[in-house]
C-alpha cells in the first residue's frame, strides 16, 4: 500500500444523538452510501472511528482527509413506505461524515 506520508483527518462534526440527513448524490465513481438511505434522516448512534475515504482509495488515491464514520440509525417505517413491521424496527447504516448534513430535531 502507498506509504502515508501525511495523514489528515476531517474534524468530527457529529455526536451520538445528533439528527443527520444523508445527502443525495452520485459522485460518478465508487462510493459506499446505498441509494435507499440517501435523503433519509436519522440519528447518530455511534462514532465508529476515522477511516481513509474509499472514494479515493478505490482509484489508488491516499484517501485523505480521512473521514469520521458514523453508525446512523433510521426508522424502518420512514425508510420504506411499504414496511411491514412495528414502529420500533430500525435500520443502521455506517456512513462517512462527508455524506451527512445536520438535520433539525423532530418538532423543530
Amino acid at each position: 500500500m502507498t506509504a502515508m506520508t501525511a495523514t489528515t483527518d476531517a474534524p468530527t462534526e457529529y455526536q451520538p444523538g445528533d439528527r443527520v440527513r444523508v445527502r443525495v448524490d452520485n459522485p460518478g465513481g465508487h462510493f459506499r452510501t446505498p441509494a435507499y438511505i440517501q435523503g433519509q434522516t436519522g440519528q447518530v448512534a455511534a462514532l465508529c472511528g476515522v477511516f481513509a475515504n474509499p472514494e479515493s482509495l478505490a482509484y489508488g488515491g491516499p484517501g485523505q482527509p480521512r473521514q469520521p464514520l458514523y453508525r446512523v440509525e433510521f426508522d424502518q417505517a420512514q425508510v420504506w413506505p411499504e414496511y411491514r413491521g412495528p414502529a420500533s424496527d430500525k435500520i443502521l447504516v455506517d456512513i462517512y461524515q462527508h455524506w451527512l448534513e445536520p438535520a433539525a430535531s423532530p418538532g423543530e
Binding site: R32, G49, V93
Partner: peptide, 11 residues
C-alpha cells in the same frame, strides 16, 4: 425490535 445492520463500510 428488529435492527438491521447494513455493513457497508469499515466495520
Amino acid at each position: 425490535a428488529v435492527r438491521v445492520l447494513d455493513s457497508t463500510a469499515d466495520l
